[in-house]
Design a protein around this nucleic acid. Sequence first.
DNA 1: CAAAACCATTGACTTAACTCCATGGTTTTG
DNA 2: CAAAACCATGGAGTTAAGTCAATGGTTTTG
Lengths: 121, 121
Amino acid sequence: MRIGELSKRSGLSRDTLRFYEKQGLIHSHAGAAATNNYRDYPEDTLIQLEQIADAQAAGMSIADLILFLSQLEAADSEDFDGEAFLQARIDEVTDRIRRSERFLDSLRRAKQVLATPPTEP
Amino acid sequence: MRIGELSKRSGLSRDTLRFYEKQGLIHSHAGAAATNNYRDYPEDTLIQLEQIADAQAAGMSIADLILFLSQLEAADSEDFDGEAFLQARIDEVTDRIRRSERFLDSLRRAKQVLATPPTEP
DNA sequence: CAAAACCATTGACTTAACTCCATGGTTTTG
DNA sequence: CAAAACCATGGAGTTAAGTCAATGGTTTTG
């Protein structure tokens, strides 16, 4: 599909998609018509964009994401401990979830307070 | 306590603490010695800083945090629906946790793959 | 008591992740 | 077929959340 459709279906702006592609998070190939230079994005780019959104929600930077993706592909590089890298991310995300849940509790408590009318003395 | 101790105990830089104070997230008062202009931070600032870290981990911006804090204090302002605001944050954080957990799963699966030696054909 | 360590203030700088704009070419549509 | 809608590229601008550097005053310490 072309970038306009991808943008509409993913909810991301064209600029964001081009930015992601420049960073190497998604990929496209030249379209069928040789007359233009329009790019074509495969259908599963939508799934990848969802995964990117998940990763971002978990606090990963794009730089980390690129490293993570290279882990999925490579699975064997000398000078890089993939397992250690992944474990470090797992620890980070776990901690972030813990903190998020703690914060969620205080949001709920605050709402509770707001919803409860003050008692007459 | 003075800013140096707060920095050491919280793990945040002085600059960050001053930045937070300028934003209104933490507060201090003039110290005992009238001869200088050193500021004094109450003990429970440390707790507040932990809560701020939780909120940030949950994806809240400082601007939102300030609104949230004002909710805790005020509890009654005409032109502002505190409950709706809090519910919106609750929904956001809930979704973020959901996505984070999904991402955590793929991190764990990736590590599993890496840890499993390829099977001989 | 002097050097080292600390403090406040101001303003410029940095980084990540976009976002906008200008330009010029291509497709689609009424 | 012309206007509207779409596309690519390059580069500048924006925002949030800090970080750094310069200056000048204050405390602590060996």
